[in-house]
Design a protein around this nucleic acid. Structure first.
Lengths: 196, 196
DNA sequence: GCACCTCCATACGCTGGCGTATGGAAACCG
DNA sequence: CGGTTTCCATACGCCAGCGTATGGAGGTGC
């Protein structure tokens, strides 16, 4: 009864990693709920048979996708910014580098909606602590005392998160691209100005 | 074949509003995906029969829940704060009043994950513009020029959003309750200090 | 060139949720 | 107190997605 398979000229065998990438893309586009085996299989031009060969079940796929996200989405950025010697310039570069893509990438927000899953909570915790820690370190380098540096790091990161959230929810309220630099500058000023 | 119904001593007939409230609660707890007719019916101690009498379908229920959210979650707060005459105090009271409950209520974040639905997008747009507009007005009252007031309103609201997002994702990074007031004060200072 | 191992296609059963149909209970109204 | 209207319970069909079973195609080694 089995028909001729692989009528496609693309015969490409798939790896577990291919599935994980596809799952990550699905999260980005439709949230965790979009990580569904059969739709992904269709999109990859294959069938569930392939999936259940590489993974035990859907949970394992989610786990793999999260692992790839953690690896790709924080360390690379920090490393790229570390080339700048002056800490104040580093902070500015970090924000200019990071604000726009984040607005275009709903992955983190999608994950946030599934924070009840322990795997997701762990992933978010890891990247969040890393980022805030890095920011706090920057403010320390800039001469702020420990506590104050931590506070400012938190402010900065909260601002970043809120900004990207706005970018997704109601982008029209954000400054237009001409006004955007002014806006970012004003924010940096507020964050960097010494205590009164 | 129909068995004795309403074996419960609670015979309570339900209204459309009861269903909408239940749906809103479901959104808060499990996101839009949790707005499912049969589970809600079970939770209300009734059956789908009731639901499909009050609503045409699931979409209509979601719409009703959103309407209730909009009404209850922005105007009331603003009205409550408006009693304070001094704008700077008003801003501080607004933030102290609003930061903690928001951290405990994932509704807005849950909705954000379903921004692709036009009804959700419209609801979020409405409350967001209202809030930012109100904040910008505050900064205008405080003597900032139009553009600067708008920028500061945005900063303030972004900070607020980011803060509540952190509260959900990784609450442990937020200042402990003793340090919290200091943190809030430092943030207010940063937002209120005049341009250099 | 055959035996084996990798990878995948298909079919199947199962669950959960949507929407419909229909009849029956409870309240209301005269 | 009988008829009507309002509200709900049950049963039904349907669909999407998960996980399983099974066998078959293609590459690989010898």
């Amino acid at each position: 009864m089995v028909m001729v398979q692989r009528q496609q000229n693309k015969k490409a065998r798939l790896s577990a990693r291919d599935w994980a990438d596809a799952a990550l893309a699905a999260i980005r586009e439709g949230g965790l709920a979009a990580v569904a085996v059969e739709p992904l299989a269709a999109r990859l031009g294959t069938t569930k048979g392939s999936f259940y060969w590489h993974f035990g079940n859907r949970e394992a796929l989610i786990e793999a996708a999260l692992a790839r996200w953690i690896e790709a989405d924080t360390e690379e950025i920090i490393a790229a910014v570390e080339t700048e010697p002056d800490p104040e310039q580093r902070l500015r570069r970090l924000f200019t580098k990071v604000t726009k893509p984040a607005v275009a990438d709903p992955t983190e927000l999608s994950l946030l909606a599934s924070i009840d899953r322990p795997q997701v909570a762990a992933a978010l915790r890891q990247v969040t602590e890393r980022r805030i820690g890095y920011l706090a370190g920057l403010f320390t380098e800039l001469g702020f005392a420990e506590d104050e540096a931590r506070r400012r790091g938190l402010m900065a990161y909260s601002f970043y998160l809120g900004h990207t959230q706005l970018g997704h929810a109601v982008p029209s309220v954000l400054p237009s691209s001409e006004g955007f630099l002014t806006y970012l500058e004003a924010t940096m000023d507020a964050l960097l100005r010494p205590k009164s």
